[in-house]
């Protein structure tokens, strides 16, 4: 029996979509029994949200005022305290999971498998290395827990319709006071979330300014799309960091990805290779983005984008 403890990601109010994707990955392990841990200040409604996912067998609700905001140094000892008896401990390969899971692995005295993209067996997985330029098949040692993060862009979300039991657990662990959350600055937006949007429009350095990025927002709104950006556009200050797509930003898999004024550095392409259809609009016909685009259009974005927006809106 494969017993998997999966750490849920949430913002205190709702469960992050990364959790349902991790459930799908975990369900591909042979004979998987999946328990999801919800560590929150008051996790009742979060726990019932998770309990409604198919394939989840049990939800473990760990309430503690210290869990009001996710701090790896505070969460890790609690996860270790409940990890006994599990063969696997999984989390998402989002910044939440990347921060937390290696701390859990080290406390358990094991190495971690980062970014699972496919499951070949209970201890055998595939993962990308070198910015996705190579895929390695790895095998975790037997006889110790397998700690891993799941590359969420590789998995669909588990469906609703489950009815797992919820167990409230109190955890006796020493929680450090050496790390304190101060604030979160987040560009709230009504647009679809970049990581889960079916359509994404991204802009690059060629936009030239933060003001010109309005062109991208308008096109995205006409399409009902989320908005992303290349590293160059973020570095130039046109848009905030949370919009960066690529190796060190977000790895996404929308049905439609439209790259505008993005030349297509390998690190950017890493973030979009699971997209359904990639459209590239760029004035340089030699730009590497055209080598992987399904539909390419060479030309001046300042002319093309408003035209495209008008055509879609009409």
């Amino acid at each position: 029996m494969t017993r998997i403890l999966l750490v849920a990601e949430h913002d205190g109010t709702t469960i992050n979509p990364s959790t349902a994707k991790c459930v799908t990955c975990a369900s591909e392990l042979p004979d998987a029994e999946i328990h999801v841990a919800v560590l929150a200040e008051d996790g009742a409604s979060l726990a019932s949200e998770v309990a409604g996912l198919t394939s989840v067998d049990k939800v473990i609700q760990v309430d503690n005022p210290a869990n009001s905001y996710p701090v790896a140094a505070i969460l890790a000892p609690q996860i270790v305290a409940i990890a006994d008896g599990y063969s696997h401990v999984f989390g998402p390969s989002t910044t939440f999971g990347k921060d937390l899971m290696p701390r859990v692995a080290a406390l358990l005295g094991v190495n971690q498998i980062s970014d699972i993209m496919s499951v070949l067996g209970s201890h055998c997985f595939r993962r990308p290395i070198y910015a996705g330029n190579a895929i390695v098949t790895v095998e975790a040692p037997a006889g110790q827990p397998v700690v891993a993060t799941v590359r969420t862009a590789s998995y669909a979300s588990a469906a609703d319709g489950g009815s797992a039991s919820i167990e409230a657990v109190s955890v006796d662990a020493d929680l450090p006071g050496h790390t304190r959350f101060i604030e979160l600055r987040s560009g709230k937006s009504d647009r679809p979330d970049l990581q889960t949007a079916a359509k994404v429009v991204s802009g690059g350095r060629a936009l030239g300014s933060a003001e010109n990025f309005d062109l991208i927002y308008k096109l995205a709104d006409a399409l009902g799309a989320g908005v992303g950006a290349s590293r160059a556009a973020v570095d130039a200050g046109y848009v905030p960091n949370e919009m960066q797509v690529g190796q060190t930003g977000k790895i996404i898999a929308p049905k439609l990805y439209i790259a505008i004024g993005i030349s297509g550095a390998i690190q950017h392409l890493t973030g979009i290779k699971d997209a359904g259809t990639i459209v590239a609009i760029n004035k340089d016909g030699e730009a590497p983005i055209f080598e992987i685009a399904d539909i390419g259009l060479v030309g001046d974005l300042f002319k093309i984008v408003p035209e495209l927006e008008a055509a879609i809106s009409s």
């Binding site: 895929i135 390695v136 098949t137 040692p141 290779k273 990639i278 080598e291 259009l297 030309g299 093309i304």
Partner: peptide
């Protein structure tokens, strides 16, 4: 205990698609 690396492979490559001439084509 190390995580052993069993095999290395190239990722699936995306193919170059079509080029269109204008917004109407797109």
């Amino acid at each position: 205990a190390r995580i052993s690396e069993i095999a290395f492979a190239l990722p699936e490559q995306r193919q170059k698609g079509i080029m269109v001439d204008d917004v109407a084509g797109l």
